[in-house]
Design a protein around this nucleic acid. Structure first.
Lengths: 76, 76, 76, 76
DNA sequence: GTGGTCTAGACCACT
DNA sequence: GTGGTCTAGACCACC
């Protein structure tokens, strides 16, 4: 059995999918780290890592503490 | 004698070792922050920081108010 | 109103954004822990924790007593 | 130009090389996180990550806080 | 009960 | 001066 997806990737991929399908539109505000942690039932550190990953992929922008938003050209 | 390991890391590594050796099994509940603090003779803050480190390493999971548990795939 | 982002994360993300946008360049010196604490109106501990997060993300480098600097390859 | 090696990998590889060449023998005690951080001029978080990597590769064993040691059969 | 966070003030080691 | 850590005590939200 292959290694399962780590939680932070699961969350990141979930959000990425919502962006891809248009459920989350460019410019939309994402939940805060704390809200994500509660929503997905994980530790704040895990939620933070998920957001960090999306930031790296340039799917989201902004200062997460002041509000994280879906990038205007997600995936460039 | 060179500078020693700080207590919060000592505690974190101690728990990590117990997970690695199987003394703590995936799904097992860890002692509460307060219990850990008492067991190691440190302040709650210090014990909390140790647990935070293990969260980062994805060795443990759990959310506030529900306790802390050994991750299902510790170390991925 | 849902629970907000904790200050130490807000500060960390704020600094991370400045690095990402280039407002803070690789090699630049960051404000000291004490300066950050004053600037954001928080305790030194809180500012220190924010910097620790950025260390984990490899966005900043430096050792005790020498100041903190933007990493050469922020975000790898 | 290819992405440079992140510091924590550089340190991990450095230690791994010392184990491979026999400069560090099975059973030898490794420096503490703090000592490693000082020796390599990096943050404690970075040194900690390097040790964690070696632990994952089973090159080292033990509870790092109580002392980390070169594994008896490094690389298995 | 649980974990998470903040302030306050102190100490240490290194530059 | 710098960053890193610890204690002490408090508060919050969720179960």
């Amino acid at each position: 059995m292959p290694t399962a997806e780590p939680p932070y990737r699961r969350i990141a991929n979930d959000l990425a999918a919502k962006i891809k399908t248009g459920e989350l539109q460019p410019g939309d505000k994402l939940p805060s780290t704390r809200e994500l942690a509660e929503a997905y039932g994980v530790h704040m550190n895990t939620a933070s890592r998920a957001l960090s990953l999306l930031h790296d992929r340039e799917l989201i922008t902004g200062q997460p503490g002041r509000g994280t938003y879906v990038a205007e050209r997600p995936g460039q």
